[in-house]
Simulated assay, not measured.
Amino acid sequence: MADEKKGDLSSLGDDKGGKAKAPKKPAEKRFTVPVFAVCVVAAAVIGVLVGKFLLGGFAGGAVTGKTTLSEGELDSTVGSYVYQGQTHAITARQALGAATGVDAAKQDDGTYTMPSADNVLDYARNQVLAVAVKAEGIEVSDEDMATYAKDTLGTDDYASLASTYGMSEDEVKEVVRQSAGVKRLYDKVVGTDDSAQAPETPAEPAEGSEDAATADYGKYIVGLLGDEWDADKGTWAREDGPYYAALKDQSFSADSATYDQAMTAYYVAYQQYSQQASSQSATWSQYVNGLLANASISIGELVS
């Protein structure tokens, strides 16, 4: 059975010209914990778990060697994890509910698709993170959930989200609750820095006005320059910054600049954001890997 594709860190790659590209939107309407784009890089996590990442390492009530499940087998064990001295079984219902929703796994013949190894692994990771959230004294209220859902998914209408993502309303609420908690944990570990925000792309000019200089583009550029620009004198405040390096040969002002000049400033701003976001991601991954290094995760032989 093919593994389900998961959301992960947003792409921060550069094109051949050295200009950072904005992350692409996911093609599928599916989300897992964490919904936001700061979850752990899977390869790094699995690397930490070498020696503790087992296949078929448990027995007793487990279903193995199958590709589908009957409804009566949804509560059968498909994996387990040991964390802080306690062993926890993972059922097919839990793994599917957190990944795709149980109903979405139901097939035309009434059987259910077996959860993939990634589904089971993701569920175990997220439970370890949930323990860390609780240990930090983070509590997520209904209001916190609503705010997070609006900010991340555009709405806190859980019934609508359930319909859109093919999940039950309770499954959606649980994903949002866990994601909101992990986001708070992320902010505590990494810190909240308003400068680590992707810049807005300047509006494209009307056809036939591509080379026209406007006040809007001038205002856009100056708004990005920060302490590199002296607003009173209308010129550079210093010449050792990345914006100066990119725009030093350009003639512009707060009242007049072209679209191309604005895009040059945008690419510099995005590169700065990209570097800071990468640093934050590395800090978060190191923290989570530290947690998971103390966990043992076993996954049943899910397919024959």
Rank of each mutant, 00 (worst) to 15 (best):
D8Y: 00
S11L: 07
P23Q: 09
F31K: 00
T32D: 13
A42L: 06
G47L: 04
G51M: 12
L54H: 08
L55C: 15
A59H: 05
T67N: 11
T68C: 11
E71M: 13
V78D: 00
T91L: 11
V102F: 11
A104W: 04
A105K: 01
A105S: 10
A105T: 03
D108G: 05
D109P: 07
A117C: 13
D118H: 01
L121W: 04
Y123H: 11
R125H: 14
Q127E: 08
L129E: 03
V131F: 10
E136S: 08
G137E: 08
E139M: 05
D144G: 05
T147D: 11
D151Q: 15
T155W: 11
D156N: 06
A162C: 09
Y165S: 03
E169M: 08
E171I: 02
V172C: 03
V175R: 09
V175S: 02
R177E: 05
R177N: 11
R177S: 10
S179L: 04
D187Q: 07
D187L: 07
G191D: 08
G191N: 06
D194Q: 15
A196Y: 03
A198T: 02
T201R: 12
P202G: 14
A203K: 15
E204A: 10
P205C: 06
G226C: 13
G226D: 15
D230Q: 08
D232W: 10
G234F: 12
R238F: 06
Y243A: 03
A246R: 05
Q250F: 12
A254K: 15
A257S: 14
Q271S: 14
Q271H: 07
Q280S: 12
Q280K: 10
S285P: 01
N289E: 14
L292K: 01
A293P: 01
N294Y: 04
A295D: 02
S296R: 05
S298Q: 05
V303H: 04
